[in-house]
């Protein structure tokens, strides 16, 4: 057997070990992505053998949690993909306005920027006070940061531009208080957000939602896992509920493409059929 083949096998064994020891299941993630993240950790630690990474994962919990951070992608920004949020204002808000109470699930929220973006839109549309936003992620460290809602000034500049490009017309900085080089999001935007640890791969349905936002999460999964998670999302939506995906994500390879109508095809907003 060639060396490359055994390194592939070693990655599978490492992921098995990680799952059985810690309960985090990366076995059906995009393998090219996982390989890249593991190689980068190996470069940082000077370990040149995947098998040694495996034994370190089993015996060193601190190291295992470092690797968990490597495998969990938390890159996000407020009003990421401005056109998406423009479409939310135009196409989703009118639907949400018909409900007396609104439940929105932001699945895979990472450090919370997009959940806060939704909160701002709801506030501006007069819907925030009757909404609960459930923002979940399996990465506790990211969730803890999300709860704080603190962003550096450099990030804030980018976010303010995103906000304007997404159709925001208020003064973006009014949503924050500033402390030295950081902006802290207002308590009035935090109060209806419930932050919770939930793993899309291993946990199940926890409520019926009017809208689910799950963006740039499914791209990391293989087709079987995408299908499994789409089932979970489908079962978590009320009939007529709305699903928002990342701009490069689709329902195409799943069993669920026929179960939604397209609210905005290009911007990946779908409505669950009645």
């Amino acid at each position: 057997m060639r060396k490359e083949d055994s390194s592939e096998l070693e990655i599978s064994l490492l992921l098995e070990a990680f799952y059985h020891k810690y309960g985090y299941d990366f076995r059906q993630y995009s393998r090219a992505h996982i390989r890249r993240r593991i190689m980068s950790r190996m470069g940082l630690t000077g370990i040149s053998d995947v098998a040694l990474i495996q034994s370190k994962v089993l015996n060193d919990q601190t190291f295992a949690y470092e690797l968990l951070q490597d495998l969990s992608i938390t890159v996000t920004e407020m009003f990421r993909d401005q056109e998406f949020y423009k479409s939310v204002r135009k196409n989703v808000i009118p639907v949400l306005k018909t409900y007396p109470f609104i439940k929105i699930w932001h699945a895979g929220c990472a450090t919370g920027q997009e959940a806060y973006s939704v909160a701002i839109i709801l506030k501006e549309e007069g819907l925030y006070d009757r909404t609960t936003i459930y923002a979940t992620d399996f990465n506790q460290q990211a969730l803890d940061r999300a709860k704080e809602g603190i962003f550096s000034n450099a990030m804030m500049e980018e976010y303010a531009l995103n906000y304007q490009l997404s159709g925001g017309i208020a003064s973006f900085s009014d949503y924050f208080t500033f402390n030295y080089d950081r902006g802290i999001i207002n308590q009035s935007l935090k109060k209806n957000i419930v932050w919770a640890n939930h793993n899309l791969v291993t946990d199940s349905v926890f409520a019926e939602m009017n809208m689910i936002i799950c963006r740039n999460v499914l791209i990391y999964f293989d087709i079987n896992l995408q299908n499994k998670v789409q089932k979970l999302l489908y079962e978590s939506l009320i009939p007529g509920g709305i699903l928002g995906l990342g701009l490069k994500e689709s329902l195409r390879f799943t069993d669920y493409s026929e179960k939604y109508t397209e609210l905005d095809k290009k911007l990946r907003l779908f409505k669950k059929k009645y």
Partner: peptide, 8 residues
């Protein structure tokens, strides 16, 4: 097959 990611 292609994979896309939004990593750093």
């Amino acid at each position: 097959t292609f994979s896309l990611t939004v990593d750093e």
